[in-house]
Amino acid sequence: MRIIFQLVIAFLAFSALVSVARKKRENLLGPLGAFFWVVFWLALVSIVSAPMIAQWFADMIGIGRGVDLVMYVSIAVLFFVVFKLHIKIEGLKRDVTVVVRNQALQSEEKGRTSS
């Protein structure tokens, strides 16, 4: 059962890494983002293939079980990703505002000059 799980995760990670490489090549992902996702998927494959790695890290920083460490790190990563998404959405909202504002000002100006 464990070997099937490890193979599935390895396949998922491989697909994800291919996708990261493609996005990087198409300039859809920055160097920092690409580095983050490569490290993330490699770490996941390493921990699933050799769970003692998580236990070793957990022992090193004083957390009881390796699985707890994985949970804590996952939650922290998810919080970070959600936060980054918030920042990105806010940036897009500001860009849209500039477009909507310019459109409003231009159509008023057009109406004023034509009348």
Binding site: V96, T97, V100, R101, Q103, A104, L105, S107, E108
Partner: peptide, 16 residues
């Protein structure tokens, strides 16, 4: 009258 084509919020409207 200046028209925002979509609802952007009061702060955006004031800045326009």
């Amino acid at each position: 009258v200046l028209v925002h084509s979509v609802n952007m919020g009061q702060g955006a409207a004031l800045e326009t």
